[in-house]
Design a protein around this nucleic acid. Structure first.
Lengths: 212, 212
DNA sequence: ACCTGAACACCGTTCAAGT
DNA sequence: ACCTGAACACCGTTCAAGT
């Protein structure tokens, strides 16, 4: 007590600052991370942050390094490359979606590629087992990965903006589908994100495998 | 002259404010749009903005309405549904990528769905022509659209952060692909975004069509 | 109805100064 | 080496007041 803040003992370290920042991002989101708030949380002057990690850009870069180190782990179950690729894709999506705010931060800092390294190792093994090689394998790998992150980036907004201003029902009228009026109810009905992801992943992986 | 600012004549209107804001977003990006800067550009007091469009959230919502109205137009060329779907997908990507910053703003405001309405009309016709119907058609439609926006959201960062901190070469070592050492150069080499998009679109569309 | 000016509670960043 | 305090140049938002 006294001169010590309750949230730390002894001298301040770069790692302490980053951990406290990560905690703020996890609970309140990246937008609410401020250097001043971080300093207050640590019980130090604002300028102490600058000494240990540099300016806000450096702080975010440091955070992204931490995030990358423990996100994006995947597991692959099932028999055969196709089933295992689909399983790995689902697993990666779940891992990223669990901490979608952190993924968005990594993406904003332009470091998305590094997020996939664990998944890459798993996917590359299955693609090779399925008979893909060379540039085709590299394209297939990245196609699956991009599809997964894309879905996470898109669905994150749905999760945090429950009151989507324009519902599908308002967008479609019979004029839009003159040739197939029976399609209208399906188009107007809200598509479950998980179902759509599963459909896309299965179609994509199936096509990649069966091209051989 | 005198009391009149050079950028407007007569009374201020909501539309004038929004147009000026759109200009700022187009040239400097959404992050640089501030109410104070906008007021300065229009030569009025800050509070005049509040009177005409409300707070910043309302300003962004109004902007998104403008953007949605004139983005995402697509054209579809070629013979047969498959070729026309691929063509439409490419066209949509180009349209969105041309103004990727505006797309990102729309996405941040949770209005992505509205961005696709023009493309939906084109795609739905081709999918119907290819024999898809019911929920399968709705899933296929959204799968293609999400894949296109996902690619735009991902590639936008690449475009604006030319100095990606971690290059592919640094990520991969021979240990990562013990079974297929010949893959290494392809994995380490940077994948062209357009090539990857084309590959993914063709695989996805081909699989959707040939499922029938 | 439309607009101004001043004020409040925030930001990030720098700089001189302390121990 | 490590940290503080004060200052600067920004934000968004509100409120009372003017015409």
């Amino acid at each position: 007590m006294g001169r010590q803040s309750p949230t730390r003992d002894g001298a301040l370290s770069r790692d302490q600052v980053l951990q406290a920042a990560l905690e703020i991002v996890r609970t309140d989101g990246a937008d609410r991370l401020t250097i001043r708030g971080l300093a207050a949380k640590l019980g130090v002057a604002v300028t102490a942050i600058y000494w240990h990690v540099g300016d806000k850009q450096a702080l975010l870069d440091g955070l992204v390094d931490l995030i990358i180190a423990d996100i994006g782990e995947v597991t692959a179950g099932g028999r055969g490359p196709e089933a295992r690729l689909v399983s790995a894709g689902r697993s990666l999506r779940r891992s990223l979606l669990d901490q979608a705010d952190l993924v968005a931060l990594v993406q904003r800092q332009g470091r998305t590629a590094a997020l996939f390294q664990p998944a890459r190792r798993v996917l590359v093994r299955e693609l090779t087992a399925a008979g893909l090689a060379g540039e085709e394998a590299a394209l297939a790998l990245q196609a699956i990965l991009n599809m997964v992150v894309g879905s996470v980036l898109i669905d994150r907004q749905v999760a945090r903006q429950p009151a989507q201003r324009q519902e599908p029902e308002e967008l479609w009228t019979a004029d839009d589908v003159p040739d197939a009026p029976d399609l209208l109810p399906h188009l107007a009905h809200h598509l479950d994100e998980e179902r759509l992801f599963d459909y896309t992943l299965r179609v994509l992986v199936g096509a990649i495998i069966n091209r051989q």
